[in-house]
Design a protein around this nucleic acid. Structure first.
Length: 466
RNA sequence: UCCUGAGUAGCUCAGCUGGUUAGAGCAUCUGACUGUUAAUCAGAGGGUCGGGGGUUCAAGUCCCUCCUCAGGAGCCA
């Protein structure tokens, strides 16, 4: 991969951290101090007592470590205070680091001293099973448990991989505004707010149109930020607030766009495999399917996909008067739903890109295929293992008149899009881009059952707390 | 927005065709134990059965209604 490290910057950062902040021993780096006395700061994850022994499982945010308190090794008052510890009490523990096969993590602390910061009473999340509703209600505490901890570290790794990939490949970060004056694609799917004397403003559902303007200024850019959809979706793969990265490249055609999308996804998955083995193990994630995520991925045109659906007797499911009806054979021109996507993906062990969708089911800004005006130069990447759609992108319409025609066809206000049309008036060039849903990718890689588990504080149709 | 399902102890659940004082495991508290891995063993406390209304001699159980939550569809990343 083309990623490079700027050594100078890393060096400066290290000096800064060492000279200005408190430097604590972390559980993550206990292997460096075997045989030495250390002080750990954290929270009691669990405690087991056996007569003259207490086993404290301590977590400090970086990992968990077993701390053994033996009555013969500590002052009687220290042993008594260890007895009073409860789940999630905050403490400072001092003792010798020992290599120990029986301890989780391989190292344990032979405790000499314990300082109690706070004794916790009635911590709601016990080390037993809990229901989904209870856990999400206690999201602020659920984040402390080992699986959620592992997922959040994988999320951080995914985001780092994305940034490293683009920054190392000549892309510039160009953030798009979150408050926008008009509903750019659809209509009723946006959150609305008041904006001083201008009346209504909306929370952005995509930074793409602004990314296009940015690409014409800086060449290759990406925007990375939260995005908002007011759709009343109630599924395990939708959030109303989610994070999306949207690269946009001047002079890229659809093929370049697909190549870049494949490179990015391969890089993210391989980066997580390389840096998050412990987290994947905690999650009991089978990494074999992830190891396979290497180029080339699969590709299919929409038309080829429809032929496949017909050959495999996958119907179109439609609702007529509230009743489900199967339509055979699948009619060309209809968009794919979950049924079709899952049927297609079941044959693949790697992501698959489906490209050249019918013009009528796609957004107005997508460029029509010069070889067939019934389809647009759009592409969606579907992940294996029921990951669903993780990327959606296209080559953009770069012709002024054709774009104007499409804006009018979609009943959009030409005035609102005047600035966007300007891009086709002053030095228009072929250009392409795509959007990657961060949570969809983290859900796939981590194997989480529900998308709400892969964002710290999920926002969903029936939940805005905590 | 539509379809389906669920609300009983702090948590996870059982509770049959209505029938004495509503049950279990875990958690909590007390006690025992020098190697526990969701420790084990003995004991104790803990309930407006989601809210309201109705049927009945009798309702956790049947009926109506409201609330809350979950899963799926559509839409999408």
């Amino acid at each position: 991969m083309f990623f490079f490290v700027n050594n100078y910057f890393i060096f400066e950062l290290k000096i800064y951290m060492e000279s200005r902040y408190k430097k604590y021993q972390t559980i993550e780096r206990l292997n460096e101090v075997e045989g030495k006395e250390v002080t750990l700061r954290g929270w009691v994850y669990n405690i087991r007592s056996k007569g003259k022994l207490h086993f404290i499982i301590l977590r400090d945010g970086t990992g968990i470590c077993q701390c053994v308190v033996f009555s013969g090794n500590v002052l009687p008052e220290i042993f008594e205070s260890a007895k009073s510890l409860t789940q999630e009490s905050s403490i400072i523990v001092t003792g010798m680091v020992k290599k120990e096969e029986r301890a989780p993590g391989g190292y344990e602390i032979d405790v000499k001293d314990i300082e109690i910061i706070q004794i916790t009473n009635d911590y709601p999340i016990t080390p037993k099973e809990h229901g989904d509703a209870f856990l999400i209600e206690h999201r602020h505490l659920w984040l402390r448990s080992s699986k959620q901890h592992a997922i959040m570290r994988i999320r951080a790794a995914v985001i780092k991989a994305i940034r490293d990939f683009f920054d190392g490949n000549g892309f510039k970060l160009m953030d798009s505004p979150l408050l926008t004056p008009n509903a750019c694609e659809g209509t009723s799917t946006l959150f609305e707010t008041n904006y001083f004397d201008f009346g209504k403003a909306y929370l952005s559902q995509s930074g793409q149109l602004y990314a296009e303007a940015s690409a014409f200024a800086l060449g290759r850019v990406y925007t990375f930020g939260p995005t908002f959809r007011a759709e009343r979706s109630k599924t395990r793969k939708h959030l109303t607030e989610f994070w999306m990265v949207e690269p946009e490249m001047a002079f890229f055609d659809l093929n370049d766009d697909m190549e870049l999308a494949e490179d990015l996804v391969e890089y993210i998955v391989q980066f997580v495999l390389k840096t998050c083995q412990q987290e994947l193990k905690t999650l009991e994630r089978d990494t074999a399917p992830l190891e396979k995520v290497k180029r080339p991925f699969y590709r299919m045109s929409y038309t080829e996909a429809v032929d496949w659906l017909i050959a495999n007797k996958v119907p179109l499911k439609k609702y007529v008067d509230g009743k489900e009806v199967d339509i055979h054979p699948f009619p060309w021109g209809e968009d794919f739903g979950t049924v079709q996507e899952e049927a297609i993906m079941e044959q693949f062990d790697k992501p698959c890109i489906i490209h050249r969708y019918p013009t009528d089911v796609k957004a107005f800004y997508m460029k029509r295929d010069p070889e067939n005006s019934k389809v647009v130069l759009a592409m969606d990447m579907l992940g294996p293992e029921r990951a669903g759609e993780i990327i959606g992108g296209s080559q953009r319409e770069d012709d002024y008149d054709l774009l104007l025609e499409r804006i009018k066809q979609h009943d959009l206000s030409v005035d609102d899009f005047q600035w966007y049309l300007d891009l086709r008036k002053y030095g228009s060039v072929p250009h392409s881009g795509f959007g990657l849903g961060v949570e969809r990718v983290v859900k796939w890689i981590s194997g989480a059952k529900h998308i709400r588990e892969v964002i710290p504080f999920p926002r969903m149709i029936y939940r805005i707390t905590p």
